[in-house]
Design a protein around this nucleic acid. Structure first.
Lengths: 250, 250
DNA sequence: CGGGGCAAGTTCTCTGGAGACGCTAACTCC
DNA sequence: GGAGTTAGCGTCTCCAGAGAACTTGCCCCG
């Protein structure tokens, strides 16, 4: 009946993970730095390889580190993208949000990498929401400091926007919502939906994430005041990033 | 120079995980069902225990399964909480969203478990946003089918709402935003921010989640049209759940 | 019939070892 | 000096085994 002196002490791998995490969050290890590898942890703590891997897996799973086969495990810390103060975008400025973000994120480069626009047959989900068999799809990829962090796919009912500037890569001043206003679909009301932690779809390749990496999906539907759906926007982002989603004035 | 016949075939543990996942998503295995355990996978596929564990870890990491020590690994599938059709809430109805959700989620019980209201000194973050040293905090826990899925903490500047119905557990018809309107802070404009996949804070205990379980945080600030911040709302939810976040008419 | 204790079953933690695969940098050769 | 090659390093996958911790159901006893 020897009382175990260390009751419910955290397991070894967790103590190591806690130690590494505190080094990351305290700033001792910075974004991009290389963590001690499996071999280093093995010799430092006198543990087996599997235990060292388990410790690193905790941080990788939390999104604080990224393993690179053949190279090492690296710190991956997103600083929050956050607008300071109380400046907000009017709905009309929504389409220009990028420019304002650029000037307001303290020098961090938040940019659009790629734009694709095409006309497609609706998928079942999109067709049900937009009540249309064909849609124009506008895909964009956003990057922060050169790292892709977000994909956006905007779907418009094809018959509603056919032949308008929405079907062009550059929508002009005021962006998409100004063009929708030109078509008489203004003001626009939004609904929002957050789907967290989807099993990773193929799209994650575009974010340069490994298959199976958890992602976050935010869907937004825009309606006219008459209740006609005019846009279905799906934003797919790395679930480990902190992202300022939007910020507008109604 | 023997050409490997199976180039880049997925590893064993991933093939097993894919098989189990498809059984879950196809409905063959349902929420609460028990998955084949480590021993079952070992004998079925002729693999080592570590490999079987790795396969199950994939599903656990994706949030599709939950291990219960001494018992087994169980399917944990949240059906989407989704309002059908195009019915939306007006801003005035926002405070009554719960009642409307209740009647509109096809019999799923989306309920408020607990409510706590107290007056506190502001934390640094809250104080900066609300520009107030003291705040009234209103905490609520939401459950779906008896499982806690979401925490909400609404912060109000103490000097603005002192003595009003907002400081009571039941805010009455129209909810918090009707009370803010009574105080002359109407209409209200929102900003939204999504912070994904935080390292789990202590709060996760209230969601009955293990420490380190990924959670999702959505923050919303409400401003008057004059730019005065009147509410900071932080929603903490299980990152594995699919949650309809909100749905309102501007 | 209720309660306590036991045993089987299951996950959790950890050890030790091995080959495969990918990245990087040093080296060699032109 | 530049280009191609190679060796070392580090992660990835998988094996075999063992004790600890926990849950559950069953049996026995009162």
């Amino acid at each position: 009946m020897t009382e175990s002196p260390a009751q419910h002490e955290p397991p070894i791998y967790r103590r190591i993970a806690d130690s590494l995490r505190s080094q990351i969050l305290s700033g001792e290890l910075r974004d991009g730095d290389r963590l001690p590898g499996e071999n280093a942890l093995m010799s430092e703590y006198g543990i087996a390889r599997a235990t060292a891997r388990q410790a690193l897996a905790v941080l990788i799973n939390e999104g604080l580190a990224v393993p690179r086969r053949g190279s090492g495990v690296y710190v991956r810390l997103f600083r929050p993208i956050r607008r300071h103060g109380s400046r907000r975008l009017s709905r009309e400025q929504w389409g220009q949000g990028r420019a304002i973000w650029d000037s307001d994120t303290r020098g961090r480069a938040y940019t659009v990498d790629e734009v694709h626009i095409e006309r497609l047959a609706s998928t079942e989900d999109v067709g049900r929401v937009l009540d249309s068999d064909e849609v124009w799809v506008r895909r964009r990829r956003y990057s922060v400091d050169g790292r892709p962090v977000q994909l956006a796919a905007s779907h418009f009912p094809a018959d509603l926007v056919e032949g308008t500037a929405i079907t062009l890569p550059d929508t002009g001043p005021g962006g998409v919502y100004a063009r929708l206003g030109d078509l008489g679909y203004s003001p626009v009301h939004f609904t929002e939906e957050v789907r967290a932690r989807m099993p990773a779809p193929n799209e994650s390749e575009l974010l340069r994430l490994p298959a199976g990496n958890p992602i976050l999906i935010v869907a937004r539907t825009a309606y006219t005041s008459g209740g006609i759906p005019v846009e279905l926007n799906e934003m797919t982002m790395d679930a480990a990033a902190y992202v300022l989603q939007y910020d507008f004035d109604a």
